[in-house]
Structures are given as C-alpha cells and as structure tokens.
Design a binder for these strands. Structure first.
Length: 283
DNA sequence: TTTCAGGTGGTGC
DNA sequence: GCACCACCTGAA
C-alpha cells in the first residue's frame, strides 16, 4: 500500500482536472489504469491510500507517478505569494498533483483532446484500450485494459482508429503511430532533451500543435515549466491578468510571470476557472 | 434543430 | 507571420 497525505493530495482535484482520462469514481473511491496495473485510491483516516488491485506496480513507480519528488509545500508557497488570483486558485485546487504519465499514452490521449470535450476524450480512450489494449483482468465486475502499445497499433488501418468519440482525429492517431514505427523513434528521448528540442520532437507528429505538445511535455516528460495555452487559459489570462488577445502575448506572459512553476500554475488556475464556471459564480 | 467542445492543418494574403 | 475556416460527434 502507498499513501498520500491529504495536505497535498485529493483524488477529485487530481483526477478531474483534465490531465488524465483513465480514472473514474467507483463506490466512493477512484479506480484507474496505470501502465499494466489497476489502482484504487481511497480515503484511509488522515490520508489517502493507493492499492494495486490488478497487475503489479512497485512503490518507486507509484511515487514517481504521483509526483513524489516534488515539494508541494514549496511550490504552493512560491505561487500563492505571487498574487491574489493564484492565492485563490492554489487554495481551491490544493489537492492537485501533477501526474507523471507514460509518453505514448499521453501523446495519443492529447491528440484526441483537440477541439474535443472531456467526456468524449474519456470515451475515445476507453474504446481504444478496450479494443486494442491488453486485458488486465476484472475488478468489481468491471473489465480493465492497458493502453495499447505502438506494436499493437501499427498494423491497424486509418479506419481502425475511428473509435467512439475520436471522429476525424483517427487520421492523427494513425499517422502518429505510423511515424513512430517507420522512423524507429524512441519516445523516451525527450526526457533528456531541453524544452525546445523536446517540443520540436513532438510537433513533428500530425495532429500535434503547440497546445498538445505542451500537455505532453508537462504530463509525461516532467517539464514542469511547460504551460499549455488553451481556450480556458487564454480566458483567464485575459480576464485576470489583462493580457491582450494575441498568441505571442499569451506565451510571453506565461514564461515571464510563472517561471519554472508554469505547469503547476496552469493547473491551479485552470482548475479554479472551471470550478467557477461549474458553481455558476463566474463568467 | 442548433450549438458547443481544453486545437490543428490548410489556405490565402 | 497572421487571420480565417472546416472538422467528427455526443450532449444539452
């Protein structure tokens, strides 16, 4: 069993903030697939417990997945001193942890996210795994599948990628898988590359632009200063910080203002904006 | 029946 | 460079 302190972790904040699409609430707990394992996260007294219910995952891998190397006290302390909005955002999303996910899965998942919405992204990822992923077993009457590998997907046609909810993005999935295979690309390479080179590595793929590339840098390659700029983030930069509605202005503001904790700032602020909308208090 | 969704690639200037 | 625009499709 692996444990996370409540001060810097909450399943809802972490799993519903849009960084991952394979976790779902089950009987008051959260169940999700990570690599070849199925995990269950539940409240255990003054902290949360992570139990491996199917497959295997060692403590080191769990710690890495849950971003255990980072000092969240220090990150939050740095951000909430910045301004009023970050103070509110950090408080409202105090349970967010940035998960360190597998590169191939994160790449394909965020290709599916473009001009899409969260329920449909989840649907597409689930269908992709169900069809082409390795069966991991059954837990509480529910079947679980791993995310498919490059090798498993490379023989499929463009039509095979028309999974439920994918729509026209099937072409991007197909092209990306083909490109990785054809060029014999090592998806572990970007870990060792600097930010610019890593981003260029990702943008070679059809269907990967600035936003998707930044998401993969942040959620898979542990580039914690990556700052994905989507419509929500643009909105909050305009409305909270008075940034003009020009792409270059958004980029310049993000790197100058949030510095090395850009990814964390983005998640706290994003979470905050979405919750404002969800509770009907904001616009 | 429309409209919208956590963008991207293609086109035209 | 930058401004448009089409694009699958489930849900409201």
């Amino acid at each position: 069993m692996f444990y996370l302190e409540k001060e810097h972790f909450n399943p809802y904040d972490t799993f519903e903030c849009g960084q991952c699409f394979r976790w779902k609430p089950v009987n008051g707990a959260y169940v999700g697939v990570v690599g070849g394992a199925v995990l269950r996260v539940f409240e255990a007294g003054d902290r949360f417990a992570v139990e491996v219910v199917l497959g295997e995952m060692d403590a080191l891998a769990l710690e890495r997945y849950f971003d255990g190397a980072q000092d969240y006290g220090a990150i939050k302390g740095y951000l909430l001193e910045k301004d009023h909005w970050l103070k509110l955002a950090v408080a409202s999303g105090a349970g967010i942890r940035l998960l360190n996910q597998a590169p191939f899965e994160t790449l394909l998942t965020f290709i599916l996210s473009s001009n899409n919405n969260i329920p449909k992204i989840k649907m597409a990822v689930a269908d992709l795994c169900e069809r082409y992923g390795t069966f991991l077993g059954t837990y509480e009457g529910e079947a679980y599948h791993a995310f498919p590998t490059v090798e498993a997907l490379v023989s499929f046609t463009i039509d095979d990628f028309k999974v439920k909810g994918a729509g026209y993005r099937n072409k991007a999935l197909f092209e990306t898988v083909q490109c990785i295979y054809r060029e014999g690309l090592d998806l572990n390479l970007p870990y060792a590359l600097d930010d610019l080179a890593a981003k260029a590595f990702l943008k070679r793929f059809y269907g990967v632009g600035d936003k998707v590339a930044d998401c993969v840098l942040l959620f898979a390659y542990e580039k914690k200063n990556a700052f994905p700029v989507d419509t929500w983030v643009k909105k909050l930069m305009r409305e909270l910080y008075g940034v003009p509605d020009v792409q270059s202005a958004y980029d310049a503001f993000a790197s100058a203002y949030f510095d090395r904790y850009g990814g964390y700032a983005q998640q706290y602020l994003f979470h905050y904006m979405r919750n404002l909308k969800a509770t009907g208090k904001g616009d």
